[in-house]
Structures are given as C-alpha cells and as structure tokens.
Design a protein around this nucleic acid. Structure first.
Lengths: 110, 110
DNA sequence: TAAAATCGTTCGCGATTCGCGTACCTTCAT
DNA sequence: ATGAAGGTACGCGAATCGCGAACGATTTTA
C-alpha cells in the first residue's frame, strides 16, 4: 500500500528517486525499494516522507484514502482553531447552523 | 517516541499488554518490546494500533502531538463537510470571517 | 554525433532487527 | 501455599534492512 502511495505522490510532483533519497539522506536504491515494495521504510522514514509530501502518515499507510483529511463539522470529536485560537463547541455548532441556513437560502433562490 | 505514546494510551485505557497482543495477534513479549523501545512495530502493526486506540498514526509516530487532529480553518489546504456535503473555499472564508466578527464583538462587550 | 549525465530497476552482501518462546519477579486472589 | 495475571528482560533463528554496484534506456551536454 505504501509503495503505491509513494509512487503516486512522487510522480504527481515530478520528483526523481534521487531527489527524495537526498532529502531523507538515504541511498537511491533504498528509496526505490520502498516504491517497488521490495523494502519497507522505517518508521522514521515514513514520518519524514509524510512531511516531505505534505500529507499524513495515515494516508501513506492506507489508514485513510484521502491525501488531506476531510472533517465533518457536526462531528465534534476533533479540535479546530481560527487564528490559532481554539473554537468552542458552541462556536462549532453556530458554524454548522450558519452553513445550513445559507444552503437553505440558496436552495430557495433557484 | 512511539513507545512513549503506546505506553500512555494503553495506561489511560487500563488495558493489559496481553489484551493488545491478542487484538493484533502477536506475542505479549513482542508488544512489550514496542513499549519498552526494544523493538519497532511493523508498519502494519502501527496501522492496527492507531485504529485500536482510536487515534492517528501521525500521533503514534510523533508527527503531531495531538491525539485528535487540530485544524486551523484559515489554512485552506484541507477539506471539510457539513452534513456530508463538501464546503467550498468561499464558505470556509465566510466561516472564518464569522468567527472573527463574533470574537471582535465579544471583546467590546467586556 | 559522440560522450556524459540522469533516471529507474534489480541484485547480492553484511549487518541489523524482528517475533517468538521462555524465564523471572510482583501482586493479588484463592 | 498455590496459582493466575501483569510486566520485564533476553537468547535464538529467521527475516529484513540499507548500501553499493551494475545495467539499459533516455536525456543533456560538449
């Protein structure tokens, strides 16, 4: 799974094997092994690859299928900030109400 | 890092080493090795542990320090939904404006 | 156009690390 | 006392790692 993900991400960015190997300070053949599935990267390497590709380790490992996480606002089991300041539960609910009202309005416009 | 995280999460849930080993179908000593730092779990094990603990692999690996992800709304590099429906970039910006205005108002109330 | 560089792939080697069973020590309930 | 359960530590064989080297195919440079 991770081999597929790495291959996709690298090609999308048009990076070479050597470039990534240099970023992680490993041999080209080592990284090539990750993509071919011949080798498994160390946990540390997985971590660095996620950062390099600006994605999450969950995506690389196949825990999730989305390169960037999708958040359902009505699910309050996560935290959000605006300008670095935490949103309260109330504020999240107000946001949801705001979006719903706005959509309702647009539906009637048509 | 992962050893520390695993140890914390397990103790918080008051689970035994044996229980987790059973869930992952590995030996107790194997999982114990993960917590002591004597061994590193396979990528597959990391994946399963994240699911078992209801957290993310990013947290286990120390990419992030939050058990549940925190999202900065002004960073538009992620996706959000309300009632399963994707928010547009415009809508996200409106939300941010809404929160900022609300906070400004509250600041003046005091 | 010839030479050199870059790219991706594969393989063997030595070294490292894995997963398991086992043994050991505590604590607690029988 | 005895046994079950939790946690820790270690040796062993097996599996896997990371690296350098070699290769053919393109692309770039001289």
């Amino acid at each position: 799974m991770i081999s597929k993900r790495l291959s996709e991400l690298r090609k999308k960015r048009q990076w070479s094997l050597q470039y990534i190997a240099d970023q992680l300070n490993i041999a080209k053949s080592t990284y090539a092994g990750y993509e071919s599935g011949y080798r498994q990267p160390s946990l540390e390497a997985v971590k660095e690859l996620a950062i390099l590709f600006s994605t999450t380790t969950d995506y690389l490992l196949g825990v999730t299928d989305q390169e960037q996480p999708t958040i359902e606002l009505t699910n309050a089991m996560f935290h959000m900030t605006v300008d670095g300041e935490q949103l309260t539960e109330d504020e999240v609910m107000q946001l949801v109400a705001f979006i719903r009202a706005k959509r309702e309005l647009e539906k009637h416009k048509k």
